[in-house]
């Protein structure tokens, strides 16, 4: 087994990523990163009563970009949207039993993707309220 400084948990999430895919009728959608920089993540969430009931992701990027996206989706499932907005990159890295220093920006990106999807949900909800 390769040892390139990734924890077992990172490698597990890379090898068996959770919640991969898209949600067609998502309540929130977020996309962060840039293929030019080598990573791009998108996240879809379904929300009921402000609780994230389903979440899916797709990621273009390195091993830790894929692992952190997968980890974030696991952490966010069942979470209140306000809690999801408070999730930090350190929370993600800690849950993965650490990341090599050069890869910390990946966990940042994963948290950002979740925040973007959550904000999108909140905005849409706000529009609905205002509209209705």
């Amino acid at each position: 087994m390769a040892d390139i400084g990734y924890s077992k948990k990172v490698l597990d999430h890379f090898m068996n990523p959770r919640n991969v895919g898209v949600i067609e009728d998502a309540d929130g959608y977020g996309k962060v990163g840039n293929p030019v920089c080598g990573d791009l993540m998108e996240m879809y969430i379904k929300v009921k009563d402000d609780i994230i009931t389903d979440i899916k992701f797709r990621t273009f990027g390195c091993g830790s970009a894929i692992a952190t996206s997968s980890m974030v989706t696991e952490m966010a499932k069942g979470m209140h949207v306000d809690e999801a907005l408070k999730l930090t990159r350190n929370d993600v890295a800690t849950e993965l039993e650490g990341l090599p220093p050069a890869k910390m920006h990946c966990s940042n990106l994963a948290a950002d993707a979740l925040h973007a999807a959550t904000k999108d949900y909140k905005e849409k909800k706000g529009e609905k309220k205002n509209g209705g």
């Binding site: 087994m1 390769a2 390139i4 490698l11 890379f14 090898m15 920089c37 080598g38 990573d39 273009f60 990027g61 390195c62 091993g63 830790s64 970009a65 894929i66 890869k103």
Partner: peptide, 24 residues
């Protein structure tokens, strides 16, 4: 797709060691 992921998947899933010029 990205090179480090290629390298990792080739190594961990298939036991084949390759190289990449990827940034990551």
């Amino acid at each position: 797709i990205e090179g480090e992921s290629i390298l990792l998947n080739m190594d961990l899933r298939h036991g084949i060691q390759v190289s990449t010029g990827s940034a990551c």
